[in-house]
Amino acid sequence: MKIKIELFGVSREFSKNNLLEFEINNNSTIKDIRNKIINYLDQNFNGNKNFKKIVNSSAFCTENNNIVSDNYKITKNEKIAIIPPIGGG
């Protein structure tokens, strides 16, 4: 199935479209998504270490606006947002 990753903050630098799309297996988890993004960065940004560090310290958010853990199973073609380290105000 296909999954869309909506990009925010510094992760917007990953794509001009502000979105990444991956083909994933059924019952894939957030951990799998994290690895997909890391692989994408290896291929498209020469393994940019800063970008990979950002992915590893990011949270992920479902369409229902819930922050979910690495074990969260993606069961439909949902849109997931990456939430890099924050700092508003």
Partner: peptide, 26 residues
């Protein structure tokens, strides 16, 4: 989840590092 990108006098810009948001348990 709010992020800042600073813009500088030398036309450079940088996203500020920030801190990881707390992960909630499912």
């Amino acid at each position: 989840p709010i992020w800042k990108k600073e813009h500088y006098v030398d036309n450079q810009s940088d996203w500020l590092k920030g801190n990881p948001i707390v992960h909630e348990k499912n």
